[in-house]
Amino acid sequence: MSDRTVSVERAPRCRQGLEWVFTATPSLADEDILRAVTQLLDGERWTTQSTRLGEAVLTSFVVPFRFELRVGLVPGQLTLLHRMRAEEPARVALRERLAGLLGASDAGVP
């Protein structure tokens, strides 16, 4: 079992409660975050897009009409954007599942 903890914070400026920031302690490497994303997206229909911004590469993953994940701009951090039409119980379940995957995503990390 991992003793990693994952904080899940609602972005304070998002009026609709759509944006949530996941931060693991101890911090996760981006490849570990991507491993958790891969598990989350398994079996889903999704799209992805990468954009270079300065030294960073922003990668977004979209499961249409349900959610979007953004990775890469802030080291060790993942942003979840719920879609407007996603129902609240599904949103809560998604956040719990994602936090669990991130908390467990330390295989192979020294």
């Binding site: 911004l53 300065g54 030294e55 960073a56 922003l58 701009l73 802030v74 951090q77 942003t79």
Partner: peptide
């Protein structure tokens, strides 16, 4: 924003 931190803030 993280975008600012990546592009402008440095």
């Amino acid at each position: 924003s993280p975008e600012w931190d990546a592009v402008v803030r440095p």
